[in-house]
Simulated scan of single mutants.
Amino acid sequence: MDKLSITSVNKVTLPFISKEENNFTIGLLDYSKKLMRDLVSKFSLSLYNFHQSRLAHYKRVVDKLNERNVIVNTSTRIPNAASVSISESIWNDIIVKLELFEIRKGYLNQEVSLNSLAKDIGTNHSYLSKTINSVKGKSFKNYLNDLRISHAYLELKRDSKMRKFTIEAIAFENGFKSAESFSKKFKEKYEIYPSQFLKTLEA
Rank of each mutant, 00 (worst) to 15 (best):
E180P: 05
N92H: 10
N69L: 14
T13H: 13
I170W: 06
S181P: 00
E173T: 01
I90V: 15
P194Y: 00
R163K: 13
K97P: 07
G27R: 02
R158Y: 05
K184S: 04
H151Y: 15
F50Y: 12
S113Q: 04
L35V: 03
V70C: 11
F50V: 12
K138H: 05
K164E: 15
I90R: 07
K187P: 00
G122V: 03
D63V: 11
N22C: 08
S178P: 15
L14C: 01
F186Q: 03
T123S: 08
I71S: 04
H151R: 15
I17K: 02
I192S: 00
N66F: 05
N124Q: 06
L28E: 10
T166L: 13
K59Q: 05
Y48L: 12
F165C: 13
E168P: 01
L29F: 09
P79T: 04
F50E: 14
E111R: 12
S134T: 13
T123K: 03
D63R: 08
R37L: 02
E191V: 06
S87R: 08
R68M: 14
S41K: 06
L114M: 00
K136V: 07
K19F: 15
E202M: 07
I71F: 09
V135I: 11
N73Q: 05
V135T: 06
R148W: 05
L114C: 01
N133R: 15
N124E: 04
R68F: 13
K187N: 04
F197T: 04
S178M: 08
D30W: 01
L128W: 05
E188Y: 05
R163G: 07
S46M: 07
E173K: 10
D38A: 00
S116I: 13
N66Q: 06
N109P: 01
E102W: 11
S89C: 07
S181F: 04
L39Q: 06
E191S: 13
K59R: 06
K105N: 08
A82D: 14
G106Y: 11
N109W: 06
L198Q: 06
K184C: 03
E202Q: 11
N80C: 05
I170E: 03
D159F: 02
K157T: 07
N145H: 11
K64H: 07
N133T: 10
V62P: 00
K105P: 03
K130W: 06
V9Q: 01
S87D: 15
K97H: 15
D120C: 12
G27I: 02
F182Q: 01
I95N: 04
N80Q: 12
I103S: 08
